[in-house]
Amino acid sequence: MTASDTGGVVPALTVADLVAAIPGLAETGIAVDAVSYRTHPGASLTLGDLTDVAEAIRQSTDSGATGVVITQGTDTIEETAYLLHLLHPGSQPVVVTGAMRNPTLAGPDGPANLLAAITVAASPTARERGVLVVMADEIHAADRVRKTHSTSTGAFTSPTGGPVGYLVEGQPRFVSPAPPRHVLPAPVHRPRIGLYTATLGDDGTSLPAIAAQLDGLVIAGFGVGHVPDTWVATLTALAQTIPVVLASRTGAGPVLTSTYGFPGSERDLTNRGLIPAGFLDPYKARLLLHLTLAAGATTHEAAQAFRATANPDEPWPWPTPATTMPRT
């Protein structure tokens, strides 16, 4: 983003412009092949755009790239990173980054974030970790990172578990082991997945009309996964026709399955066929449900995918593709 003639900042810089603005890149010895793929604000990206990016990543890694860096507007980084994570089978790291302060402001953070992202993507220590988000010298896992502030340069955090690593004196240092990888087949359908958030006093009368247009639904419930009791009959009926996933609107911590027992509690809803999202927040639960259904999954297979993301002992419904390069 940079200044426009009509006021405000708009997507105008090429990736060559961004790379040219990075101080110290030449001293790293890292060769960068810079490609301007599309020029859209983060808010205007589509799932189709991102599946195309996933294919471009595959082509790059098959051609010998050590790693890949994606730059984009920060509005949707937390979603972009997780979607690409679910579609990236390679051992090469993919790092998503952006900037909270555009170049027209004092102290823009874009060049530093991009240098850090390139450094991580080139590092052998980042291999086998799938997609990472690097912002403000912190390294975040794609399935946990969230944008938690509208303007702060420290906007990206991982409320559940914290960062998996940091840039220390210009080099990545990981503090958590690489978790099991879950990779989905390429989409063959374009399902319509909705997200509906529980709010105080909502009686749920609009749910049937909304769900009638959908192939799957994510409910962002209160607390550990609760909804008003007036929703129960509707959600019970919906869960018989489409996959309905129960997440927490809090943004951190898990959805429970067996603690509370009142109508509309997590235990009541899972007994009625709703699928618990585990530690996934509603936005990431929506993407996992979308990609499972896009790959042709049944409701049972989609539920198994959510169980596997919550518990590493649970089997993943699809074979894990062989990585394209051995670990070094």
Score class of each variant (00 low, 15 high):
214 L>D: 11
71 T>S: 14
100 M>H: 09
251 G>K: 03
5 D>V: 09
287 L>G: 09
222 F>Q: 00
132 L>M: 12
33 D>L: 04
124 P>T: 05
155 A>D: 06
140 H>Y: 01
133 V>Y: 11
1 M>A: 15
21 A>V: 08
27 E>G: 01
183 V>D: 05
226 H>C: 10
49 D>P: 00
228 P>D: 12
25 L>D: 09
277 A>V: 04
289 L>M: 08
311 N>G: 00
291 L>S: 10
210 I>D: 04
253 G>A: 10
246 L>S: 11
204 G>V: 09
17 D>T: 07
327 R>V: 01
82 Y>H: 12
203 D>N: 14
320 T>Y: 06
79 E>G: 04
163 P>G: 05
92 Q>D: 10
299 T>E: 13
85 H>K: 00
328 T>L: 14
71 T>N: 06
99 A>Y: 00
320 T>K: 03
309 T>G: 02
245 V>G: 05
324 T>K: 01
316 W>K: 04
64 G>Y: 13
40 H>Y: 15
113 N>P: 05
215 D>H: 10
70 I>C: 02
26 A>H: 14
266 E>Y: 02
308 A>G: 11
246 L>R: 06
289 L>C: 08
239 A>W: 03
100 M>I: 03
128 E>V: 04
49 D>I: 05
169 E>D: 15
266 E>W: 02
305 A>F: 06
180 P>E: 10
177 P>K: 00
49 D>W: 03
151 T>D: 13
325 M>C: 05
3 A>M: 13
8 G>R: 06
131 V>H: 07
207 L>V: 15
197 T>F: 13
190 R>L: 13
153 T>F: 00
323 T>A: 15
180 P>L: 10
8 G>E: 09
187 P>S: 07
273 G>F: 09
52 D>S: 14
184 L>R: 01
302 A>D: 07
236 T>W: 03
258 S>N: 15
138 E>F: 02
110 G>L: 01
101 R>S: 05
